[in-house]
Simulated assay, not measured.
Amino acid sequence: MSALHIKKGATSHSAYNLRSNYGDEVERHTLAVIVENEPGVLARVIGLFSGRGYNIESLTVSEIDHESRRSRITVVTAGTPQVIDQIHAQLGRIIPVHEVHDLTSEGPSVERELALFKVAGDGEKRVEALRLADIFRANVVDSTLGSFVFEVTGTSEKIDAFADLMRPLGLQEQARTGVAALSRGAD
C-alpha cells in the first residue's frame, strides 16, 4: 500500500485544505474605541492588551461628548489578522465599551499626529534646520539663540522622516501625541 502524498493546502477546494484563511503577516491597524468616560475604563482597555502580550504603538484618549460622558480611545497596534480580529472581539466584550471600529479595514480614514522637536545648533546647521522645517511645513513655536522648537503635524511617516532629517542637525528632544484618526465619508 503506498502512502498518500498530499500537499498541505494544495487548493482551497481540496478536502485537505489546511491553510488558514488569515495571513501570517503582521499588519498595523488603527482601532477607534468609544467608551464610557468613567474611572478605570482606560485601565481595563490597556489591561486587555498587556494581559495578552499585545503591543500598543500609539494611544490617544479624549472626551468626545461631555453630555453623554463618552470618550474616544484611538489605539494603533500590530499583529496578524487573527490577532487583530481577536483584539477587536475582546474589546467589544468589555462592559463600558460602546463601539469598536477597525479604521484600517473599514475603509479610507484620515490619520494625523502632532509632534514637537527641539533642535539645537548654530551656523549652517541652524539654517538647514529652518529650510527643512519649511519643506515639512513645520511651525517654529519657540526660538532661542541656540535652539528651535518645531511643531509638525501629519502622518506618522512624515513625523518619522522629519525626525530622521533633524538628528544630524542637533535633534535634542521630541514629544509626540500619538495618532488621532477618523474614517472618511458621511458614515
Results as ranks from 00 to 15, higher is better:
172 Q>R: 05
57 E>R: 01
137 R>K: 14
82 Q>T: 02
96 P>S: 10
141 V>Y: 06
181 A>I: 06
65 D>G: 04
64 I>G: 04
59 L>T: 01
57 E>G: 05
159 I>W: 04
17 N>R: 05
57 E>S: 02
101 H>A: 13
178 G>A: 11
104 T>V: 07
148 F>N: 10
183 S>W: 06
16 Y>E: 13
33 V>I: 15
23 G>R: 03
81 P>N: 03
162 F>C: 02
101 H>T: 09
129 A>H: 10
55 N>L: 02
60 T>L: 01
38 E>M: 11
42 L>H: 01
135 I>R: 04
56 I>K: 01
185 G>S: 07
171 L>P: 12
109 S>G: 01
60 T>Q: 04
89 A>S: 12
105 S>I: 05
13 H>V: 06
56 I>V: 08
178 G>M: 10
69 R>G: 10
134 D>S: 15
145 L>Q: 10
35 V>A: 11
125 K>E: 14
63 E>R: 01
4 L>N: 08
168 P>V: 07
133 A>H: 05
129 A>I: 06
90 Q>F: 03
86 Q>F: 03
110 V>G: 05
143 S>Q: 14
139 N>D: 15
154 G>A: 13
8 K>C: 13
27 E>S: 12
124 E>C: 00
112 R>W: 03
18 L>P: 02
41 V>W: 14
58 S>C: 01
13 H>N: 08
173 E>Y: 00
130 L>D: 12
69 R>H: 15
156 S>K: 09
127 V>P: 04
84 I>C: 00
51 G>D: 02
115 A>Y: 01
9 G>Y: 12
84 I>E: 00
102 D>C: 05
73 I>G: 09
162 F>Q: 08
46 I>S: 14
97 V>M: 06
160 D>S: 13
129 A>G: 08
36 E>C: 03
72 R>F: 15
27 E>M: 10
54 Y>D: 03
150 F>L: 13
72 R>Q: 15
6 I>Q: 14
63 E>I: 07
157 E>T: 14
9 G>D: 13
70 R>L: 15
21 N>L: 05
166 M>R: 07
179 V>L: 13
33 V>W: 05
23 G>A: 12
146 G>R: 09
148 F>A: 06
187 D>G: 09
66 H>D: 08
74 T>I: 14
40 G>I: 02
28 R>A: 13
38 E>R: 07
29 H>Y: 12
69 R>A: 15
36 E>L: 02
167 R>L: 09
12 S>R: 07
86 Q>Y: 04
179 V>G: 11
116 L>E: 11
178 G>I: 07
116 L>S: 05
38 E>Q: 13
13 H>K: 03
25 E>L: 05
111 E>L: 01
165 L>Y: 08
33 V>D: 03
35 V>D: 07
7 K>I: 15
139 N>E: 15
10 A>L: 10
24 D>H: 11
51 G>I: 01
44 R>W: 04
46 I>P: 03
76 V>S: 04
137 R>W: 04
